[in-house]
């Protein structure tokens, strides 16, 4: 069981890495990041379920990951909006320099 779960987690993480590195659009990059966090969440619960004897700190870790996801999404969208407003840029190639 734990093998299946860890392979699934690794696969989701791999797809997330591919997406975050390959996509040009800011929002698609964020989707890659979210997929990586998704894998982290699954693997955290897997270990909590199989190897910690029910230590509730494992579940707490998932709550923290959920908070991180929300923070990433909120700040990510705010930055995308701010950059678009000042630069009319929606893909990474348009941001060759970050000053001014």
């Amino acid at each position: 069981m734990i093998d299946i779960l860890l392979v699934v987690g690794a696969a989701i993480f791999g797809i997330g890495v591919y997406g975050a590195l390959s996509q040009q659009s800011f929002v698609m990059i964020m989707m890659g990041l979210e997929l990586m966090l998704n894998a982290a969440l699954l693997v955290a619960i897997t270990f909590w379920w199989a190897s910690t004897g029910g230590n509730p700190a494992g579940q707490l870790l998932v709550i923290v990951i959920l908070a991180v996801m929300a923070i990433e999404a909120a700040i990510g969208f705010a930055l995308v909006t701010a950059v678009y407003r000042s630069r009319k840029a929606d893909i990474t190639e348009k941001l060759k320099k970050l000053r001014n």
């Binding site: 093998d3 860890l6 696969a11 791999g14 997330g16």
Partner: peptide, 23 residues
């Protein structure tokens, strides 16, 4: 809309293989 496509595929497959192997 992709860039550095080959590097990304290598990184993605590589991280999957390493993590799955460890798992």
């Amino acid at each position: 809309m992709v860039h550095q496509h080959r590097t990304s595929i290598i990184a993605g497959v590589g991280s999957f293989v390493v993590l799955a192997f460890v798992g």
